[in-house]
Design a protein around this nucleic acid. Structure first.
Lengths: 203, 203
DNA sequence: GTCTATAACTCGATAGAC
DNA sequence: GTCTATCGAGTTATAGAC
């Protein structure tokens, strides 16, 4: 990174902070690392963002804002079940392929303070998983899909979308593949996951 | 925790260290927190384990030792594919249901130092995923299952087993369930995941 | 806005009494 | 083995010059 003249100081700080926080987490990150990466002085960080905590919050909120709204929109969308599955897996993967480190970053901070988090990101409305669950139950009653617990089906879908990004380094180690190959695999999953699910539940 | 008289000091330290490290990660944990939780003095931690890093290593190795060997054994086992799937999902879930915070803990430390980790845990042999992959290819050739990329199939299985534990707090938030209900769901997954996979790939 | 210098504080680690 | 007290390194945060 270091000294991109086409960016404002504030932008460079944000870019570097994102990089360092995502890499090391809130506790592991040093203001010095961020300053160095941005090619500026430590004091400037405080000039722009007052404290490490405040800076972190900005980064975290942006990360959460990138991950959640799309998900929520799709879950709420008025679409046939199979279309919704395809749309969800495709759109979610599209986002995280471009931001492969976001899921672990966000997940970790949620785990460190579940309650503070839930209010910050969701306000008072929980993520509308029940909408999708109801839709699944309806299809079961119509016998267009085999009986399956909606909770598990949703969890399966989420799992297959998110996990590879959480376990990226371990997957790369055990499969012996580089970043480009990993990315290719994830591109394939955009359609593969929905195919896999539908093959399992379709009657 | 604090002062369980039936445990030796060393055992209390280990129990508290595990709790704190798992909760906050290596960087976020404080020796003071561990000492407080164990009901002893900071200096004693150093008396028993010399340094924070050494203490962490003990905890981490134990965690990894609890997670990986079983997995490796099952992957290497000489079993028909469907039996192996059932066995893997069942046995893996059995372990993590009793240690729901291990997966995130281990995953995080892997992400922070992928190479150091790989040597520590696997030595020079990678996790034998290719064995399972070959077995899948064989079944495809025999036409007992439909054609599917072995890499994706393995990833799907892993995802559905591991993810719920990584995302536990988020899942509990969005489904509005407590620890007991979560545990019940995970018990169901012991058989549900294999059923789900087999329904998708069986011819 | 940006820098240097330094204050204020946190935390891992050690010394030394009991 | 266990404690109190303290050191010293490393970090966040601020003061003040330019």
């Amino acid at each position: 990174m270091v000294k991109k003249k086409d960016q404002s100081t504030e932008e460079r700080i944000l870019a570097s902070a994102k990089k360092i926080f995502v890499e090391k987490g809130m506790a592991g990150a040093r203001m010095q690392d961020i300053a160095d990466d941005a090619g500026i002085n430590k004091a400037l960080l405080h000039y722009y963002f007052r404290s490490k905590e405040k800076l972190f919050e900005v980064i975290f909120k942006e990360a959460a804002a990138r991950l959640f709204p799309t998900i929520v929109n799709i879950l709420n969308a008025d679409l046939p079940l199979f279309d919704k599955l395809r749309r969800f897996t495709n759109d979610y993967l599209e986002i995280v392929i471009e931001n492969p480190y976001l899921p672990l970053f966000v997940l970790n901070e949620i785990n460190k303070q579940p309650h503070a988090f839930s209010k910050k990101v969701f306000g008072n409305n929980r993520p509308p998983i029940h909408k999708l669950a109801e839709q699944i139950e309806k299809e079961i009653r119509k016998k267009t899909i085999r009986p399956i617990s909606p909770a598990h089906l949703v969890m399966n879908m989420m799992s297959m979308c998110v996990f590879p990004f959480l376990g990226k380094p371990m997957i790369q180690l055990s499969m012996n593949i580089d970043d480009a190959q990993f990315r290719n695999l994830m591109e394939e999953r955009k359609t593969m996951i929905a195919d896999f699910i539908i093959a399992s539940i379709k009657k």
